[in-house]
């Protein structure tokens, strides 16, 4: 018996990293889970690893496209009959540079990937959650949703925007059995971090190792976070016990964020 028995969750970017860890934790607690990603082959390997039978389902889609975001949410309802938990988790950035040199394309890419995808999936899932008077939205923000680092303003601004979106939405649906929270992890060495970290580091004048070290040193635990740290909090917020927690930006950062 799990704390999410009978619940249906949808996780964007759920085939690896943080999203996959959340999927695994939700499945362990009895939920049915849709994971989304771009690559069906990669997804199949993840699904095989989860060993959850028909309780896990993959929906392909690029979250940078509105129609794909809606397809993933509505597809969850079509497949499992409802959606209780929405986790807009995918995200990242590209072509980092100081504001003075940042291109429109780089800012646009981070805003689309992080902010617009969160907005689109939140809106689409609320349309199902409001009539059923139940829901949990767990948006993936970041420690960079509360603080800022040089040369990654596109990422920082888009994550701050997610926090604002969650706070507003939480007040709109607070009496309808729906909670909306932002998770703010510290640096985690996910696939996305390994792919994009070197570019971000270079823009900051650091090596990749130096970047990871910087994040670790800012924390109290002096190490990076892990995907399972985020999954632990996600399960709590998604469960019945999370009914009284909304509009929050929960730090999962080893003591980095000042508030």
């Amino acid at each position: 018996m799990g704390v999410l028995d009978g619940r249906v969750a949808c996780i964007t970017g759920g085939t690896r990293g943080i999203g996959l860890a959340i999927a695994k934790a939700f499945l362990d607690e009895g939920a049915k889970v849709v994971i989304n990603g771009r690559d069906a082959a990669k997804a199949q390997r993840s699904i095989d690893g989860l060993k959850a039978g028909d309780r896990v389902h993959f929906i392909a889609g690029d979250v940078k496209k509105k129609e794909d975001c809606i397809k993933v949410v509505d597809g969850t309802v079509a497949h499992f009959g409802r959606i209780d938990i929405m986790v807009p988790n995918a995200g990242g950035g590209s072509d980092y540079a100081p504001v003075v040199d940042m291109t429109d394309e780089s800012m646009q890419d981070a805003m689309t990937w992080n902010f617009w995808h969160t907005f689109w999936t939140m809106q689409a899932s609320l349309k199902h959650m409001i009539p059923q008077q139940y829901g949990r939205i767990l948006a993936m923000s970041s420690v960079e949703g509360k603080v800022g680092k040089p040369a990654i303003s596109s990422y920082v601004a888009s994550k701050h925007a997610i926090n604002g979106l969650c706070k507003s939405a939480s007040k709109e649906v607070g009496t309808l059995g729906i909670t909306v929270n932002a998770l703010c992890p510290g640096a985690i060495e996910t696939d996305v971090m390994m792919a994009q970290g070197p570019g971000a580091a270079e823009a900051m004048g650091l090596t990749y190792e130096g970047l990871l070290n910087l994040f670790a040193q800012e924390s109290a635990v002096k190490r990076l976070n892990e995907c399972e740290d985020v999954a632990l909090v996600a399960v709590l917020l998604a469960s019945e016990a999370g009914a009284g927690i909304t509009g929050s930006m929960i730090s999962i950062d080893g003591g980095t964020s000042p508030y």
């Binding site: 607070g174 109290a220 635990v221 909090v233 927690i245 909304t246 929960i250 730090s251």
Partner: peptide, 23 residues
């Protein structure tokens, strides 16, 4: 929340001011 923070799994959650205030 207290149970979660008390578990071994919560080893990387520290210095957190964890709101349970309904927003």
């Amino acid at each position: 929340v207290a149970v979660m923070l008390a578990t071994d799994a919560a080893r990387n959650l520290t210095g957190v001011l964890f709101p349970v205030d309904g927003g």
